[in-house]
Computed example of a mutant assay.
Amino acid sequence: MRTLVLPLKGEYFDAIKAGIKPEEFRAATPYWRRRLDGQSFDQIELTRGYPKRGDDARRLVLPWKGYRLTTIVHPHFGADPVEVFAIDVSR
Rank of each mutant, 00 (worst) to 15 (best):
R53W: 09
I72Q: 08
V61N: 06
P81G: 05
F85K: 04
E83V: 15
R33M: 12
R34A: 15
Y31H: 13
H76S: 08
W64E: 00
E23N: 11
D37F: 13
K21I: 09
T71Q: 12
A57K: 12
V84W: 03
K65H: 14
T47W: 04
R48A: 01
G10K: 14
L8D: 02
F85C: 00
A27L: 15
T47G: 02
L46Y: 01
G38M: 11
Q39S: 08
F25M: 04
R26K: 13
T70Y: 04
Y12S: 00
L69I: 11
L4F: 09
W32G: 02
Y12W: 14
K65Y: 03
T29Y: 13
F41S: 03
A28P: 10
Q43D: 09
K52E: 14
F13W: 05
I87K: 03
L6A: 05
R58C: 07
A18C: 12
T71N: 06
E23K: 12
M1R: 13
I87Q: 01
Y31F: 14
P7A: 10
T29E: 14
L46M: 03
H74D: 12
K21Q: 13
G78Q: 08
L6M: 14
R26P: 07
V5G: 08
P75D: 12
V82E: 09
I20D: 15
Q39M: 11
E11P: 08
Q43K: 15
R48Y: 03
P63K: 09
R68C: 08
A27D: 12
D55T: 00
V82L: 09
V61P: 00
H74C: 05
R68G: 10
D42L: 03
R58H: 10
D14F: 08
L36Y: 10
T47F: 05
W64F: 07
G66W: 03
L60W: 01
D37N: 13
E83W: 13
R48V: 04
I16L: 01
M1K: 13
G19E: 03
V89W: 04
A57F: 02
D88G: 00
L36V: 02
S40I: 09
P22S: 06
D80M: 09
R58Q: 10
R53L: 07
A15G: 04
L46Q: 02
D55I: 05
L69Q: 14
I20R: 15
A28C: 14
F85Y: 15
Y50I: 06
L69R: 15
A57V: 02
D88T: 05
